[in-house]
Amino acid sequence: MNIDSIKNGIVIDHIQAKKGMEIYEALKLGDLDCSVAIITNARSQKMGKKDIIKIDQNMDLDLTVLGYLDPNITINIIKDNQRVEKRHVQLPQEVENLIQCKNPRCITSTEQDLKHVFVLTDPEKRAYRCKYCETLKEE
């Protein structure tokens, strides 16, 4: 299958297979005016299978969201058919309003104006805990 290369834009590569759509939704790529391609189950020497997203324009990406969803992805910035920048992301130390605390005894369950903040407590296990009640994020 061929997807045209892009002249100016962004290629999000090495996405864990089947996770492309989640990233598409999280970055609200459906709201863009330009063409966006999601390639799923592309062959990868490193990963076996991977997803790729191609965005036909340059934009500011939320690296915190990307790092949280998949810290292994790479971001390629394309200008005039050339890759001008390659970026890696990492697990963010803290995420806001990406995870909802499910603990019914947490203060966020009654005070609706509070942001749901989760803090990375164990990078190896990708464990995040609620900043208020320290409840572990449910898988």
């Binding site: 005894r105 947490c106 203060i107 966020t108 009654t110 509070l114 609620c130 208020y132 009640c133 320290e134």
Partner: peptide
């Protein structure tokens, strides 16, 4: 003291005087 976990922490973010947590739920 507050039944909701994390309430004293929320209080400490806005307080102009020191806060002592005297128990927040089971936390």
């Amino acid at each position: 003291r507050h039944p909701k976990e994390g309430a004293p922490f929320v209080a400490s973010l806005k307080s102009s005087v020191p806060i002592i947590n005297a128990g927040d739920g089971g936390h």
